[in-house]
Simulated assay, not measured.
Amino acid sequence: MKRILIPTDFSENAWNAISYAMQLFHQEVCEFFLLNTYTPVIPSSRFMAPIIDGVRIEDAIRYNSETGLLNTVERIKSEFCNDKHSFKTISSFNLLVDEVKDLVDTYNIDLVVTGTKGASGMDEVFMGSNTVRIIKSTKKCPVLAIPQHFDFSVPTEIAFATDFNRFYTLSELYSLIEMAKSFHATIRIVHVQYEIKALTELQQFNLNMLRKYFAEIEHYVHTVSELNSVSQSLEVFSEELGIHLLAMLNYQHSYMERMTREPIVKRAAFHTQIPLLVIPELGMEANSWHNPKREMAKT
């Protein structure tokens, strides 16, 4: 059973992420944890009343959170009736990123799915600040970010962005491999270079290891010239090849780190038009989604 955490603020953006997750995993047994966090404003002066119409502000906000979660579950069951899916709601007086981090540890979460959009009035922003914070703070499982207006498509074309400078472990790539197998997808390994040149000996070794990991999956290697930024280069590549999902590992000096630090002007063209699977740096002792050690234990 997969354990999937989905934060929601009850917006249509959040619902779109929920809808994507229900369709992506409709054939798998899953337990979904729906999370809503709230941080009531504490009255700081005598002009801010802590009680309105006899109801404490904190109690009213907590009630709205809990009710919103129950209504969300009812909507899911109405639109995506699936006996393989079960749900747990969590209403928490906490900061979103802190609560996500705690729940990943507490419930051994396999995947976090979140909606993403640029900040209001700033379409140039790579993705919402909460999404970026979740990606940076979630160290034990992948994060799947779903763009605001993305309609679900079966991910039969998956791009994996890498510069081949780091050795990836099977534990880190296992979630990507399992997804590709589940949907009979093609993986397109894409390498963005500022200046096209031959791979170093280290890069070639890491590429050969990737080929071994993807041996049972149709895969191709693509080298593309960097445009104004890595993010824009990957967007153009994804559009031209009809990519349904972009995946990358998040570690120091990775594409993901570079993309979240690129100046707004440079990343203006990248609006996360397709889902983004961000895999944390797990290492050899990973306890991640479909950990290969779990699979070997079963056999």
Rank of each mutant, 00 (worst) to 15 (best):
S238G: 02
R3D: 11
T138C: 07
T260Q: 15
R261E: 15
N13H: 06
K101I: 06
G118M: 02
I243N: 00
E201R: 13
E124M: 15
T131C: 02
D9I: 09
F214I: 01
F33K: 05
V221T: 10
G115K: 01
R166Y: 06
S120R: 11
A269I: 03
V278A: 05
S44R: 11
S233N: 05
Q193D: 01
P275D: 04
F270E: 06
V97I: 11
S175P: 07
K139R: 14
S92H: 04
H149L: 08
A247L: 02
T37H: 09
T89E: 06
P263N: 00
Q252D: 08
F183D: 00
S288L: 00
F93N: 15
D102A: 15
R75W: 07
C81G: 08
E79Y: 10
G128I: 02
P275Y: 00
P263E: 04
V224T: 05
S11E: 08
F80P: 00
N94L: 09
R267T: 11
F160R: 02
H271N: 10
E201P: 09
M122H: 14
W15D: 11
D9Q: 09
H191L: 02
Q27K: 14
I109F: 04
G54C: 13
T162S: 05
P155T: 10
Q23P: 11
S129A: 05
E201W: 12
F33S: 08
Y20L: 06
T186D: 03
V192L: 03
L170P: 04
K84Q: 13
K77E: 05
P275K: 00
D151F: 12
F47T: 13
L249I: 13
R258G: 06
R75A: 11
N82T: 07
T72Q: 04
S120V: 13
L176Y: 03
T272C: 15
R258W: 00
T106G: 07
N82E: 07
F126C: 06
E240T: 06
M179Q: 01
H253E: 11
I196W: 06
V224W: 01
L282H: 01
S153G: 12
L95V: 15
I177C: 03
K84E: 11
N16V: 09
S65F: 09
V41L: 15
P280D: 03
